Amino acid sequence: MTQVDTVEIGQGDAGVQEADAGTWRGGVRRVISIGSRPGPWKRGLVLAALALLLGLVMLLHAHIPNRIGNLGSLAETLLPWFGLFVPVLLAGALWRRSASAVAALLLPVVVWLNLFGGLLNDKSQAGGDLTVASHNVGADNRDPPRTARDLLASGADVLALQELTEQARATYEKALEKAYPHHTVQGTVGLWSKLPLSDTRPVDTKIDAGPLADTKPAHVKLAYTRALRTTVATDRGPLAVYVAHLGSVRVNPRGGFSTGHRDRGAQALAEAVAAERNERMVLLGDLNGTTDDRAFDGITARMRSAQDAAGDGFGFTWPASFPVARIDQILVRGVEPASSWVLPATGSDHLPVAAGISW
């Protein structure tokens, strides 16, 4: 028994020694692993670089060239949505426990807030001397009577419509005639007003009417008219009102962001705005672009957005089912926007917009 006990004790000591050695080796490995692991400022450097790139793109968006696929205009159209990358990068930074990535995210956050932070609060005020509204009613709108009723409910004093078809025009004229005794339609755009109109004329926005456009009959060329100018007689004096529907844009793999027709129209409209002698004016319409887009610099240099000045939120209007951009605009000069808002859907693929303006 004594010998057996001695052997058992010896074996136990060997097991303890092996366990101690294993524990020691494991501790050494842990120390080496901890020593070789990057610190919080060295982790997530790729995330930090992406955060800085995001901030620089937003900060320097005006310098993104348009030579290749109009990338600059495309980026400016989607500029507010760049902010969605911030929480994605923040989640990655927290998962990697990267202090450098979190610090780098300060740049895009500050830039985004500088660009769009002012749109997050409600700047609208009560009152206003005149209510104006604008709506692309949609050539494919299946229910123009309902759209007309919805627009009547807005209570606008001046109502601009775009994308009027020959078939739907009579419907809108009949539905709106009692509330709006004064109206004009030039091509595919029209203006209905509770106040008298004068000095009405089409505005050439350089829409191509096809070969030999200059030789076409007047009624054929009128079908390509997509902008007008008129004067509304208010009790505060004359107000020049422009209604415009600029050319459509397309995104495709080969041509990128195709904006040729729209850009020519924007340039022509900017020239008309610059030549306008009435110091008080309003521009209503579907411009097929946001006011951040450099294509509208000639207009936004002379006019300001009612939504930016007196709205609540971004005022996205297209597409109506899930608006991602504000391409339907109300711009003013010489009058003060008191409020600006987006109206409910009407059956068009655009949402109507309205604003209260005062002198």
Rank of each mutant, 00 (worst) to 15 (best):
G55F: 05
G69M: 09
S73L: 11
L52G: 06
A48L: 08
H61N: 10
A49W: 03
M58A: 05
A75W: 09
L47E: 06
L71Y: 01
G83R: 14
G55T: 08
L60I: 00
L50Y: 05
W41S: 11
G72T: 02
G44H: 09
L74H: 06
L78C: 15
I64Q: 01
S73A: 14
L74I: 07
R37D: 12
V57L: 15
R43M: 06
G83D: 13
W81A: 14
G44F: 09
L56W: 10
A48G: 08
P38E: 10
G69S: 11
L78K: 05
F82Y: 15
P80H: 12
P65L: 06
L53A: 15
L71S: 01
G69Q: 11
G39M: 04
V46R: 09
I64A: 01
L74K: 05
N66E: 03
A48V: 03
I64N: 05
L60R: 00
S73F: 13
P65S: 12
L53C: 11
L54V: 04
G72H: 03
L84M: 15
L50M: 11
L50Q: 06
V46C: 02
A75E: 05
G69R: 13
V57D: 01
V46A: 15
S73R: 02
L47T: 12
S73E: 14
L71D: 00
K42S: 14
V57I: 15
A48Y: 02
V57H: 01
L50D: 04
R43A: 11
L45W: 10
W81R: 14
L59I: 01
N70L: 02
V46P: 02
A51C: 04
P40L: 06
P40E: 00
L56V: 09
W81K: 13
P40G: 08
L54Q: 07
W81T: 10
V57P: 01
L53G: 12
G55S: 05
R37N: 12
G39K: 08
N70G: 03
L50W: 07
L52F: 06
W41E: 06
F82C: 10
G39I: 07
I64H: 02
W41N: 06
G69A: 14
L45R: 10
R37Q: 13
L45T: 09
R43Q: 12
R37F: 13
